[in-house]
Amino acid sequence: MPGDPVLSVQGLSVQFRIGGAWRAATRGIDFDLAPNETLALVGESGCGKSITCASILGLLGGEGARVEGSIRYRGREIVGMPESELEKIRGKEIAMIFQEPMTALNPVMPVGEQIAEAISVHLGCSRAEAKTRALGFMERVRIPAAPERYRDYPHQFSGGMRQRIVIAMAMACQPRILLADEPTTALDVTIQAQILAELRDLCANLEMSMVFITHSLGVVAAIADRVAVMYAGEIVEIAPVAELFAAPRHPYTQALLQAIPRVDRETVTLRAIPGQVPAIAEFGSGCRFAPRCPRASEACQAVPPELAARGGPEGHRVACLAPAPVRERAS
């Protein structure tokens, strides 16, 4: 992997106070993000993707939530960083886009001003300069007639256009990392494809790294370099995209891949995984997938398996005591 990681997450655990007790919604999250790399976080809804992202921006915390572990952005620790420091990183160094474009924008502020605000907050430039720059980014994300639409309000735009505005807002200070939390889930399929393509181009042109959250493996294939698969608050497998699709090792990943409908086959078989994702309060101490796992043994129930190479290549790690064997490669 070229260069030091821009982001390094180690042993991250997000905990919520539920009914008087602290419960860990995520546990032992480890991953690095290299410069210019796109890492996809995949998992069913509720597995902790969004809160992982939010904790990277220091947006969690306060009364009912706490964050443990370490999140290093270019060597600086984000966990426990004072709010005033965090404000300088948010939007400037690490930016975020959200799932729901319909509610992510302030309804009573012109969209152009919302983009310009990010610029003037961080770069401290004049109103006119911020506006020019904001317009530049509106054009870059292909909003037609940007100068005329600068003073329009969010309700005057379609969902796809709003998401473009959110993206322009995130790009406005040319951050090094973009956290994209299911940015296309709420959009039509055709718009999805456009936005994905544009995000990929923007990342390449602006030399950004991206953490891309999705629950769709199809989207992963289209955008990511590496994938981390999450289950019930943990990363169960992490690998380069091609590798993961070709040779998944964790039983959960295997089941997920089998559940993708394939158009190139005569009959589409959807192999559902029996059982349900446990709720936060029901998490056991061992492997959280064990209750649903066909290969689970007693050892699996006792201690959580570590994310490790387990006989495979160093870049492909899996949190399973009985992973699928490494496939022989024709070299």
Binding site: G91, F98, A104, P107, A118, H122
Partner: peptide, 11 residues
């Protein structure tokens, strides 16, 4: 949500 958006951009 838009309050979170505003915070996320460093306001």
């Amino acid at each position: 949500d838009f309050i979170r958006t505003a915070r996320a951009k460093g306001v």
